[in-house]
Amino acid sequence: MNKRILSILGPVIIIVLMIIFRYIFPNKITFLTEVVIFSIYVMGNNVLMGYLGYTSFGQPFYLSTGAYSAAIYFAYFGGNIFMAMLVAVIVGFLLSLVLAPGLMRLKSSYFTLINAALCAIGVFVFERLLIDITNGNDGLWFRGNMTATPFLDVRYPKNFFFFVLLILLIALYLYQKMDKSALGISMKATKANPEKMTFIGYNVFLIRSIGYSISIMMSALAGALYAINFGFVNPSLGENTRAIEVLLATLIGGVGSVFGPFFGALGFLGMKDIVSSFMSRWEFVVGIITIVVLFKFNRGIWGLIQDGAGLLQSRKKREKTVKVEE
């Protein structure tokens, strides 16, 4: 019962939490915006990792594909922010159409490694092959080209924060629907036992491809939001070294849960924020956290929250039964 209440109130709690943070830490607005965008990115990865059982070391590639799609749109075609996001999602979708037929036939280990390779190709393409379009390492700057949006001008960081929060709310809502839908359950079932899925008559390849596609479109959307937030994009967004960030955030939050990705993003970026204030390079810390989370903490923050709620619930029940006995 408590689990159900948590999942109904989940999106609302998350949004309220972020708004409270916004007013407690008014000078941390850039950080909070990043948390929200990163959550969407982590949710995308969670589809692969938690629902389909694929670990990808290539998520930065999909992120930077989205970011560059938006950036190229702003730099050469127009200034509409919604259009940029749409372009990014469509490019992500087309990319997944091209890649899914190959990737979704692979065993998990090969999938991981091929994605790492994709990431390297992505950096190469954005940094060198398309240098005339993307300006290579100098990055593509376009802040001046963005036009105002009606009602709420999201070009201002203060407004943009609420804008991404709204997108997160919609994303969480759809994500929750997906979790309970036939698609979500068949993805989880495919992760557990693909042979049996074939045996009860489902098309495992297509189910995986749809999940993969959702994952990439979410990453691309997050990429576009990153681009809009920074006003420029450079190839470092898609570097291999950053692949671990999204994996770790997914693990910290709790793999395969609906609200885990948000808490993972918050936990991870929070830690990064604290550590980086007294350490310029933090690979060492990331490594240690990864191992601690995997060995000691494998249900993640969301798992802890659920356990906590479960404890409260059982205590209440005990109190009730005591009263009845009296």
Binding site: L183, G201, I210
Partner: peptide
Amino acid sequence: RKDENRTVPFNMYLVNF
């Protein structure tokens, strides 16, 4: 699977089936 006779449950995406 039997009832809808579909190999991919995509049409049910937004319905709590």
